[in-house]
Amino acid sequence: MTVKPEKILLIGFGNPARADDGLGPALAEAIEAKNISGVTVDADYQLTIEDSAQVAEHNIVIFADASINGAEPFSFETIEAKEYDSFSSHSVEPAQVLALAENLFNSKAAGYILGIRGYEFDDFGSLISEKAKANLEKAVDFVEKLLKTKNFNKPQKTIACL
C-alpha cells in the first residue's frame, strides 16, 4: 500500500503517573518540540472514541504506546482496523480507533503502532526508568527521521530493533 503522507497524526498515550507507562506521552512531547511540518501531535492517558474523528482528518496515524513485553528498544509496524466485541472507553485499542474512524467517518487513514519497550509499570511516579529512557531516545530519533522523510512505505509489518 502506498500512502501519500500529506497529513500525519501522532498520538502518544499512556499514564505519566505510572512510570514507564508514560513513554507514549513522553515521545509525543519530544516530537512536538521538533515542530515538524505537516505533523499533528497529540497525547492522552488513553485512546478514546473521539480520537476517531481526529484520525479521520489525517492520512496517516502513528499510535505511540509503552510496550510491556515487546521488542527492545521499540517496535514499529502497520496495523489494520479491527472490530472488537468488547469495548471500553477506558482503553480503546489503536485498531479499534481505526475501525471507528472507518465506520463512522469513512476514514482511509493508514495506521502504525510504535511500541516502546518499558520495564516499570507498577510504581507510582512520573519518572521513566533509565532502561526505558534509553529506548525512548532511540524511538524519538527513529520517529523524527520518519516524519521528516515521510517514507512510510518501507516499514510495513516490520519490527524495528535498532
Binding site: 499512556g14 499514564n15 503517573a17 505510572r18 514507564d20 507507562d21 492517558y45 488513553q46 504506546d65 509503552a66 510496550s67 510491556i68 513485553n69 515487546g70 468488547s86 471500553s88 477506558h90 482503553s91 503502532i113 511500541g115 518499558g118 509499570f121 507498577d122
Partner: peptide, 12 residues
Amino acid sequence: SCATHAMGKMPL
C-alpha cells in the same frame, strides 16, 4: 481508577 494499560493487557 486508571491502571497501567500498556499493550498486552485487558482480557476478560
